[in-house]
Design a protein around this nucleic acid. Structure first.
Lengths: 204, 204
DNA sequence: ATTCTGTTTAACCGTTTGGTTAAATATAGC
DNA sequence: GCTATATTTAACCAAACGGTTAAACAGAAT
C-alpha cells in the first residue's frame, strides 16, 4: 500500500530553512525540494503549494513558542517569576529552533501580511499574556509602573535579534563575545530587565 | 541642456517603500517605477539596476541613524546621558524614516548577506559606540556590571519592533495603546532601561 | 530651422519560477 | 503474475520578471 514512505517533517525542515534564509519571495520551491532530497512535484503531492508550505512551517514553529509560554505560566506564581520563566522559555525556544525568529522578524517587517490567519490567535494570546503578567505585577506591588507594551517588545525584540545575529555579531564587532547560549541570553536580559521593572530590585 | 528634470529622491523614496513592504526579492522593479510615477527604464537610466537601487536606499537610510548617534554622542557627557540620547536619537530616526527599520530587520533575518559592503563600516562603528558607552558607564561607576551585547540589542530590537508594529499591535491586542510617538517610545524604554542598568537608580 | 544632447517611453527578450501532468516505479493483496 | 493503489519523476508550460534597446521627445544653442 505504501512503497517507501517519506517523513513529512523532512520537507517542513527543508522549507523552514529556505524560508528563513531567503524569505517567502526569495525562497525557491526547487531549492526546498533539493534540501529535502526529493523532486519538486513531491512537495505538491505531499504538502501543497508554496503558500501551504509556508503556512505549515510558520504554524509548526509558532507552536513551540506557545508551548514554552504556557509552561512558563503554569510553573510560576508571582509576576517576577512568570516574567523570568517567559523570558527563559522564549530564549530556549529561539535557540532550539533558530529558523523561527528569522521568519517571524520578516513577518514583522512586512506587517504580518503573509502571516497565516490560523496563527493570529496565538499571537494575540501571547501579547495579552505578557500584558496581563505586567499588570498583575503592578497590582501585586512587585513591579514599578512600567509600560507593558515596551516590555513586550524589549523581550521579544532583544531575544530574536540576539539569536539571529549569533553568527554575525562577532564579525561586525571584535569585542563581541560571539555566540551565546540560551541561558546566557536569558541571564543577561533578565538581569537588566528585572532591575528595570522591580520595585525593590531582585533579591537573589 | 536638460529638458525637464526628475528628482532622484522620488525614485529612492519609491524604492524604499517597495523594499520595506516586500523585501528585496518580493519587490518588483515595475512597482517601484509605478510608485515613482515613471517608466521602468528610467530607473536604470537614472540610478541603476535593482541591486543598485537597494544599495542606495540602504545607505541613505543608514546615514540618518549614523548622524543621530553621532549627535547623541557629541551632546552628552556622562554615560547615562549618552545612553538616553542614543535611545532618543534612534527612536526619532525610526519614527521619521519608518521604512528603514523594516529593511534593517529583513537584513538581520537574512544574516545581512545582502547588506551593502559600503554600509558595514557604519554598522561596526554603531555597535562599538554603544559598547564603549556601556564600558565607560561601568568604569565611571554609574552603571551596574551589565552585558553590553544584551543592551545593544534590547535598545535596537525594542525600538525597531515597536515602530514596525505601530499599525499592527492594536489589531492584535485590544489593550494596546496603539501608535506611539518617538517620545513615548523613548520614555518607556528609557524608564525600564535606566532603572535596569544604573547603580543608584535615575534621580529625576 | 536645425542640430545636438539629455530625457522618457513603448515594445521587446531571455530567463526564471511556480505549478501541472502524464508516465514510470514500487508495493501489497489477490 | 496481475491488478489496484500509492509514490516518484522528468518533462513541460504559461506567466512574471529583470533588464535592454531603439526610437521618440523636449529644450538649448547656433
Amino acid at each position: 500500500m505504501s512503497p517507501k514512505k517519506m517523513d513529512e517533517q523532512v520537507i517542513l525542515d527543508a522549507a523552514a530553512g529556505e524560508f528563513a534564509q531567503k524569505g517567502f519571495d526569495g525562497a525557491r520551491v526547487d531549492a526546498i525540494a533539493k534540501r529535502a532530497g526529493i523532486n519538486k512535484a513531491m512537495l505538491y503531492y505531499r504538502v501543497g503549494d508554496k503558500e501551504e508550505l509556508y503556512r505549515r512551517v510558520v504554524l509548526r514553529g509558532q507552536m513551540g513558542f506557545q508551548n514554552a509560554i504556557m509552561k512558563a505560566m503554569e510553573s510560576s506564581i508571582t509576576a517576577p517569576e512568570t516574567m523570568a520563566n517567559i523570558l527563559a522559555g522564549i530564549a530556549e525556544n529561539a535557540a532550539e529552533n533558530r529558523l523561527i525568529p528569522s521568519i517571524m522578524l520578516r513577518e514583522l517587517a512586512g506587517n504580518a501580511k503573509t502571516f497565516p490567519e490560523q496563527g493570529r490567535e496565538g499571537l494575540k494570546s501571547f501579547l495579552s499574556t505578557v500584558r496581563s503578567m505586567v499588570t498583575m505585577g503592578i497590582e501585586e506591588g512587585t513591579f514599578r509602573d512600567i509600560d507593558p507594551t515596551a516590555l513586550q517588545f524589549m523581550v521579544t525584540g532583544a531575544i530574536f535579534t540576539l539569536s539571529l545575529t549569533r553568527e554575525m555579531r562577532q564579525e561586525l564587532n571584535p569585542d563581541d563575545p560571539g555566540p551565546l547560549s540560551a541561558e546566557q541570553i536569558t541571564e543577561s536580559i533578565k538581569d537588566i530587565l528585572l532591575h528595570g521593572i522591580l520595585k525593590e530590585g531582585p533579591e537573589q
